[in-house]
Design a binder for these strands. Structure first.
Lengths: 146, 146
DNA sequence: CGCAATTGAATTGCACGCAATAGAGTTGCG
DNA sequence: CGCAACTCTATTGCGTGCAATTCAATTGCG
């Protein structure tokens, strides 16, 4: 490899480890989640809904997950087909669609409760490293989504 | 949100910021790369090929980018259609397909030389934070790809 | 040497991501 | 009130990612 444009050297890129690590984590989650029939984005949607404790509009869900309706609509339709969430027009604002977990969607919470734990086991990442990583990633997100 | 299974709280997940940051970076690269007609994975393939300085088999490229042939084959075909790389059976091992940049593929290096710089500008990430981030991500990748 | 096991790439099928656009509903301003 | 501007979700089109499978080429073992 030649010496011009050293900023193009593969081992100088931050973007590649970020991209590879994100996919590695998603892949590992995927392996654990197929056991209960979920994909990773579907799991994230449920996490956000459980967390909220009340129905969320598609846009509110998207704000929490940094995803838009183009991505969420088909994911939510699949969750609906699986009987895990309901999608209802907001009677107070017919533009909005409210998403809420069904009873079966709430039961799923128990079924995936051990997934984050199983994933973190086997990672040699300390509590402190985890906080550092989060802080750096959150800053990156904030700076890129202005 | 209820207090059971605190490990399922959305703001406790490392995976979500990792996923969101990776997509934010990829999206930003995508914006800069459309100017020259490249996608982010296509750009990564070219980076790896320029870096290697010699033809790479699909598998070797995949090892560098952590991608498999199922993903790479269509990406490489599009790069070939765009006239940026050649794909040739290895005469010494007909199972392998060697990928190499064309002259136009090499010229592309000049055209994207400012892309990483433009992306890093506007990020308030210090040299030291960048190294920390890389180290943590590389460890994560190593532990998940065993 | 002969052939079963292995390797490398391509193919298939499915689920994202995301830009761009469409289309329905709501708001705010004159 | 009327309607243009805006908001929210859905749709479209394209390019990944990835597991599973297929197919051809090579290797290694008896």
């Amino acid at each position: 490899m030649d010496a011009t444009h050293p900023q193009l050297a593969l081992d100088r890129q931050i973007c590649l480890p970020l991209y590879a690590a994100s996919r590695a984590v998603t892949r590992r989650y995927g392996e654990l989640l197929t056991e209960v029939g979920l994909t990773y984005p579907q799991y994230l949607c449920l996490l956000a809904l459980w967390d909220a404790g009340e129905p969320l509009a598609v846009g509110e869900l998207g704000a929490r997950l940094h995803l838009d309706s183009g991505t969420l609509t088909p994911v939510l339709k699949r969750l609906q087909s699986a009987g895990l969430v309901t999608r209802t027009r907001d009677r107070n604002d017919e533009r909005r669609v409210l998403v809420a977990p069904t009873p079966e969607g709430r039961r799923m919470r128990e079924r995936v409760a051990d997934v984050p734990t199983r994933l973190v086991e086997g990672l040699a990442m300390s509590e402190s490293d985890g906080r550092t990583l989060r802080r750096l990633l959150d800053r990156l997100i904030a700076e890129l989504e202005d």
